[in-house]
Structures are given as structure tokens and as C-alpha cells.
Amino acid sequence: MIPAQFDYVRPSDLPDALRILKEREGEAKVLSGGYSLIPLLKLRLAQPGLLVDIRDVSGLDGIVETAGELVVGGRATHRQIQLDPVVAARYPLLRDAAGGIGDPQVRNWGTIGGSCAHADPSADWPAVLIAARATIVCRSADGRRTVPAREFFLDTFVTAIEPTEILTEVRIPRPADRSGGAYEKIERKAGDFATAASAVQLRLGPDGRIAEVGIGLTAVAETAFAATEAERVLAGNAPSEALFRQAGEAAAAQSRPSADGHGPAEYKRAMAAEMTVRALRRATARALGQA
């Protein structure tokens, strides 16, 4: 399969990249790792006039923890995140997700910013960032704005990012003590997109009850979304198998899966519930220091 023709530029710094995006608004598209965009170009589902490859733009692939946040550059690869020692120490939700994306070659090239800006309805990062209540930083020639992950993913392949913007970083709140996160995914075969997946980030209060919880689901609606009903079921209650099951059912009820090669809608809804239960179990165990 051969993509339609396009022009290609590889600017060396961010201002240059942003200037090109502004000048060629409507026809330019940002190329990061390429593992989502190039298959689309080959299928001619996307036919941009210009690709702006941000490979040489420095400063976009760092992973830095500040006092309150983990700041992950938009060009950080899934593998970088998977292997990062700070992520391994304090962000198990991110580590779970990064290690399960696609296959080794995909993780070598695919980037968190590319994945989020692409917004495949079965992608892993959107659900994770929703669960973690992350924010997404978008830069344009005219400035910088921060969008909560919960307001970023709008529809299949549709996000809040503008054509003139580059997703430069995602910012994940640093988990407090007695926090835990987990990502649980079911896929038909190794490296496949999720059939259903659930991301959980929670904090237990001094009384052992669930003080805060975020849940993001992927592959079971037109885009990743926050399972707000399940969050309400959990908030303020003591963790238990019965409570997790109830939350799983609430997550499933909020899902809007469509039947496809991964299975019928009813099956996907059942898997949304099950993945949520498993993620809650593991996140809670981690919050208690048991896993």
C-alpha cells in the first residue's frame, strides 16, 4: 500500500515546527513515531499535504518528576516510559500500560503524544490519563494551553487539539501515600488493540476507605471515557470484592461498545466490568503495599 503524495519537513526546533503548522494550517499534520499515522496514510484514510516530523525537535522526550507531577514529553516512547525508574517506582498504572502497548517494535517508536493526539478508540494511554486525572499541554505559535485529559478525548480520532498545535507534554499528578494504580486489558492476541481495558488510580484514606478514585475505560465506546458512575459507587466506601463487582457493573453500564471482530457488544460490556474489577483489586493491593 502506497500513501498519497505529501511533502515532508523535519524542523529542528519547536518554534519552527509551530510556525510551519500555522502557515500550513489545514494541510499539515504532525508526525511523531509514525506507528499510527503511517498506517492511516497507507490506507489513505488520512491524506495531509504536509508531514511535519518532530523527531529532531529537542526537549520533547523527557520524563521528569516535579514536586507535584510527572511530566512526560509528548515524544517519549512507550518503551522509554516502560523502562523509566521513576515510573517503575511510583506510577504502576503507567508502567502496566506502557509495557502492554502493541509489541516491542511499536513500543520502540510509538510515542505517548502521538497516541493521544491520534485518539484511536482502543488506545491505551487515553484511558490511563483519564484515570490518573492527567492534564495535556498543547503548544501553538500563539501560546500554550492545558487541557484536562477528561476534556481532551472527544470522539473517535477526535480530540481537543487544534491543527496548529503540538501535544508537548502530559502531566500526571504525583500519587499521594496509600495510592495505587493498575491497568487491565484483554486482547485477542499478543500485540492486538484492546477488546476492553480499564485503568484505575485510587487513594485510600486513613480509615481504609477509598478517598479518591479515577477510572478510565478504552475500546468500549467511540472514545476512551471516565467511568464516572463506577467512581461514584466506590468513593467513600471500604474496598471489597462486592463493591468492586458493583463498580464493574456500573462501568459496563456506562460503556457503549459496538460489535466488531473483537466480539459482540454484550461480551465487550462484560469484559469492561471484569477488567475494572481486576484493576480495582490490583490497584487496592498496591495502595496497601501488597503488590
Binding site: 498506517p39 516530523d53 517508536w109 500485540g191
Partner: peptide
Amino acid sequence: DTSHCGACTVLVDGTSAKSCALLAVQAN
């Protein structure tokens, strides 16, 4: 030819890549 099978895997600067999902200009 859809970046699933890995038959086209090569190393680019030492990192394994599916060469059907990379442009030649990216490898410049």
C-alpha cells in the same frame, strides 16, 4: 504491509523497527 507481522523488521540506529511503518525520509 499493515505493521502487524514484523517480517519487515530492521534496525534503525540500533532500534528495531517495522520498515513498512517508517518513511525512508524518516530514516535519513
